[in-house]
């Protein structure tokens, strides 16, 4: 009788451990699939991002916490990437289109009093570039909006 109940307990324990392992394997495979999905999204929008390539080391560090990955809303993530990429690219393209990039390059070739004279001679273009950039930067909050829901909640804090 004693041996019989021991056998039953052992069997139950085995079933329980197997069930847990299966569940864990399932969770890991779900997270792996989600990680791949997130990577694909980031890679897609990174290729369109004129501000530069993604730093994958930082990306992996940010998503190291599985809870972050688990919590991540991929639809919201895509909306965030789309919105931020569009915002950043707009600034870069508008600067190029309006000659502000060229102006910056020229500015860098001057020093000292020469620069002062160059700035004075190009004050109109500088003013238009400044107002262009100010107009765009005020739209940052709007571009950031979809990102607030990436982790499901909308709580923000200073770093």
């Amino acid at each position: 009788m004693k041996n019989q109940s021991f056998f039953i307990f052992a069997l139950l324990a085995f079933i329980l451990v197997s069930a847990c392992k299966t569940s864990e394997n399932n969770r890991e495979s779900v997270l792996d699939a989600k990680r791949m999905e997130v990577e694909a999204l980031v890679a897609k929008y990174s290729s369109e991002n004129l501000a530069g390539p993604v730093n994958w080391q930082q990306f992996n560090a940010a998503l190291k916490d599985e809870a972050v990955l688990e919590q991540m809303n991929t639809a919201q993530l895509e909306a965030c990437l789309k919105s931020m990429t569009a915002y950043s690219n707009n600034i870069i393209l508008e600067n190029r289109k309006n000659g502000c990039d060229q102006l910056q390059e020229k500015i860098k070739s001057y020093t000292g009093q020469e620069l002062k004279e160059f700035l004075e001679a190009n004050k109109d273009l500088r003013a238009s570039c400044d107002s262009l950039n100010k107009a765009y930067s005020s739209g940052f909050q709007k571009a950031l909006e979809p990102c607030k829901g990436v982790l499901g909640a909308s709580v923000e804090r200073n770093k």
Binding site: V42, S46, N49, A62, S88, I91, N133
Partner: peptide
């Protein structure tokens, strides 16, 4: 005189926030 880009990085992705 100075000019600079304010860049915001999020999960390793850089975005131009402001040119100034």
């Amino acid at each position: 005189f100075c000019s600079y880009d304010v860049v915001i990085s999020w999960i390793g992705i850089p975005y131009i926030w402001e040119r100034n």
